[in-house]
Simulated scan of single mutants.
Amino acid sequence: MKLVQNYHHVVYRLNQDKGQGTAAVYSVLPGVEVIVFNFQASHYIPPIYPNLNILELNHCDEGRAGCKMKDGCLQYIEEGDLFMNTMSNRSNYIEFPLEYYKGINIIIDLDNLTSQLGKYIPDIPIDVQELANRFFLDDECFFIQVKEGIHHIFSSMYSIPLEARGTYYRLKVLEILIYLYYFDTAKEQQNKLYVRQEVDIIKQIKKMMTEQIDHRFTIGELAKQYCISTTALKTTFKGVYGVSIGAYMKEYRIKKAALMLLQTQKSIGDIGLAVGYKSQSKFGAAFKELYQISPHEYRNKHDI
């Protein structure tokens, strides 16, 4: 569904079965689109491009995205990462483990831009087809993990005023191509690929823990119950959700408690017990660590 359309961009509302999002599409150069995504959803099904000779650049600003690629590899994009792939190894399903995501996707039609790029960068002999081939010598996708140069390029793309975005994004795409032209691919260590079976187990574990929030599971207990090594459990959980099991559940418990403070009349002690804190003082300290105020102050602040 289109929300906005003018001469340089279109904004679409993307309704998912679990959540929604927007995609603002800017045509900035011959064969080049910049798409700004903003999701409050569990997943996104990207469109199918008939032309496979397309370079796709994905920058994550907020949240996390899990991409199952056509070649079977499973990659997780963290905040600040730049993930590159071609349409011959595209993802047909992108999940958002934290159920929110903000990022920029740059689609480059290599056939179209190659013949036009010299008009915009006459002094640097960039052949975008050769550039793409250099990044995909050993694989069909490439990760550039958080770097100051990437942050410098992308950070302002999220905050520039709407009326300037068309022109500004054109300049930024050219800057990105120059950055990639001089990038040393041999020095960039690639992200770990995750085994689908282990990821599925981690999702089952997360579901069980959040449904039984009053129980505190140990790593050994979870590993034994789900027949997974403790190392794989800890590594894969952090790969999918970005933090350790302990950190994830601590924040989940406190946020759940915050909702209960606003939506119920239960005592603070009972709410602490309901989210797995037998000690009210430990619950209060954990709550204050996240919200900077006590549970009592939080409830009073919202007039409950």
Rank of each mutant, 00 (worst) to 15 (best):
I108F: 10
D109S: 07
L110F: 13
L110C: 11
D111N: 13
N112K: 15
N112Q: 13
T114Y: 07
T114R: 13
T114W: 01
T114M: 08
T114D: 15
S115I: 11
Q116I: 00
Q116G: 01
Q116W: 03
L117R: 02
G118C: 11
K119A: 15
P122C: 11
D123Y: 12
I124W: 01
I124L: 12
I124R: 00
P125R: 02
I126M: 10
D127K: 09
V128M: 07
Q129T: 08
E130W: 04
E130Y: 11
A132G: 09
A132F: 09
N133G: 01
R134A: 13
F135W: 03
F135I: 04
F136Q: 01
F136R: 03
D138M: 08
D138I: 00
D139M: 06
D139Y: 04
D139F: 04
F142V: 03
F142Q: 02
F143R: 09
I144S: 04
V146K: 14
V146H: 14
K147A: 14
E148A: 11
G149S: 13
H152Y: 09
H152M: 01
I153W: 01
I153K: 11
I153M: 03
F154C: 03
S156V: 04
Y158E: 04
Y158T: 00
I160E: 14
P161G: 01
A164Q: 13
A164P: 03
R165I: 03
R165Q: 14
Y168H: 12
Y168M: 10
Y169P: 08
Y169N: 12
Y169D: 08
L171P: 00
